[in-house]
Design a protein around this nucleic acid. Structure first.
Lengths: 330, 330
DNA sequence: CTGGGTTGGGAAAACGTTTTCCTAAGGTCC
DNA sequence: GGACCTTAGGAAAACGTTTTCCCAACCCAG
């Protein structure tokens, strides 16, 4: 009644309910030993005043702020989004908030963000990178809080979560083999990406296992234009299937196939990587693609981070399985 | 020295520097009246202990947490990301952290998130929606903190930031007119989107101003497939220019133009909307498009929110200008 | 009745800051 | 050399919680 400007505090509730603040706290948290009637009276007052405990004050006491930081290096790009979504969903169930910070590969900004986050007493940190190989900042070593690397690799005894690029590539290639394809090419991105190398390994492994010779491998930029160009190069001796390093390349390939008068999938079957909806559905024909399950990756990271905050100390690099999504291009 | 597990507190600094905690606080904040030598001694100790003030404790005192919430309704989709980026960049300069919350149009989740954020004592809230018209939740009325709607419309005396769809459409259409086009069609999205209606208005206004008759308007889904289909319908009497409601539609249109043996831009000039890099660069030819400057929109929202936290009370719906990005399709 | 065990609830310390006094020491002026 | 200002820095309250005692009151048995 006094101030309707200020949020009600536990003191207001105590006064209104005619008890001490300790009693209110016990009623709120279900601790201590209180008569049921007292609990009820307090809770009624709580609702009447629309009281919401100040988590900051609680944090001061418990030493846990109930928030974590996410430092992204790709300006919240296409890959960070689903990760964030999974992470946030899982953590919010535990009442943990996620501070988003974008460092854009600028070590100075990264450090500034880290300082701010630490000052805000975050309980944990998630670091995501973009896809090219890059060492994580040195600064991040020896932090007083748990750190998880998602879609990026931490150091020695760090905990990292990544998609199983090799397994995904194998999945795609095996799928093509099952459909009776025997001359399977691979058109992919720049080979300074670790993911590119891993996917190539997976593709090769599946072929070897099926006693098939590897088709040609073409490296180039991650673009549709490169897909078109690479496919044009293959037109003199066209393969009967192509596994592409991502969906954009695959879509470029599909365009060249169609414009060369060939049929996909009849003449050439095609599999992409990323399962990026806007690409796979707009592709003609709709593209079979490998889904990295990034939302699940983020969710798993969230679960692990929550566990680490409670004291667990998992380490190692974990690669989560990819899934093949079958569409008309195969 | 005592606990190397626990973060050092202001008490540790005070003890090490041989002063009181009040003095440390004054040295840290440059307040009070202290001898320069004392200030220096304290600051040296601060650095030696790697002391970082606990912002939570400070917040308890100041009543400001230095964090705001962002509730998104599109699972951190394509439009939310640049907004977030701009918002976060501006606010982080003021030391304000951004909690990300994804509600995905589920009012129950939205309410739960709001409760969590309020419990964490956020100083302000940003609400973004996806693009179809939707009333903001009722729950958000009468909050004790400033609220800004970005890429979505708040109520009566709320503060909202939106791109100037009408102006952007006018920009695009005027550009086509300047290039001597006279029969300008409009292929766009579902007309239950306010943005679709506004863009159509802008297109029509530019034509009227130039004394040109409006070409046909075709409404359909936001997809390349619709762009292809719509363009096919126009092939009997092709216009000499098309302004599309988004880049995906434009790209579909470009494909049909090319496949019909016509030339873009020679026979038909083409402008898209969104300036979505992956679409405009992969399009053949690269697509002229209207950029909504969402990063700037987010940044402006950040500036305003920071001002509101300091007491400003701006209201109204603000539409920020779009920019035309010229490429080879015109 | 008295004494011991329960039980309900209050008082107060603690968390890590900021800020408002307040006091002691030193300097200045006559 | 005393009265008065400065000035430097300390003590303590305050922010809103949780939690650890601790004390009253009640119950029941002897």
């Amino acid at each position: 009644m006094a101030d309707d400007r200020r949020n009600p505090t536990i003191h207001d509730v105590a006064r209104a309910a005619g008890v001490s603040i300790g009693t209110v706290s016990k009623a709120l948290n279900g601790t201590g030993s209180l008569a049921q009637s007292t609990r009820d009276r307090v809770m009624t007052t709580v609702r009447a005043l629309n009281f919401r405990p100040n988590l900051l004050a609680k944090s001061l006491h418990t030493g846990l702020s109930g928030s974590v930081g996410l430092i992204s290096n790709d300006s919240f790009g296409r890959f960070t989004m689903p990760i964030m979504e999974g992470l946030e969903r899982v953590l919010s169930e535990d009442g943990i908030g996620v501070f988003m910070a974008n460092a854009t590969d600028d070590p100075e900004r990264e450090l500034a963000h880290l300082e701010q986050l630490l000052a805000k007493q975050i309980d944990g940190l998630v670091v995501t990178s973009r896809r090219a190989d890059r060492r994580p900042s040195i600064e991040i070593q020896g932090l007083p809080i748990p750190v998880i690397y998602v879609f990026s690799q931490g150091g020695e005894d760090a905990l990292s979560f990544l998609p199983d690029d090799e397994g995904g590539a194998r999945l795609a290639t095996e799928h093509l083999i099952q459909q009776g394809r025997t001359r399977i090419a691979h058109i992919t991105g720049p080979d300074n990406f670790e993911a590119v190398r891993l996917r190539e390994i997976g593709w090769r492994a599946a072929l070897t296992q099926a006693n098939l010779p590897p088709g040609p491998v073409l490296h180039g930029p991650w673009s549709e234009a490169w897909g078109r160009e690479a496919m044009a190069r293959l037109l003199t001796h066209p393969p009967d299937a192509i596994f592409c390093g991502n969906d954009q390349i695959a879509r470029g390939v599909a365009d060249t196939i169609r414009e060369a008068g060939l049929k996909c999938p009849e003449d050439i079957a095609l599999v992409g990587f990323d399962n990026w909806d806007v690409m796979v559905t707009a592709c003609r024909p709709p593209l079979t693609s490998v889904d990295m399950n990034l939302t699940a990756l983020g969710a798993e990271a969230g679960r692990q981070l929550a566990a680490m905050i409670k004291g667990a100390k998992p380490t190692g690099t974990h690669r989560l399985p990819c899934t093949l999504i079958h569409r008309e291009s195969t």
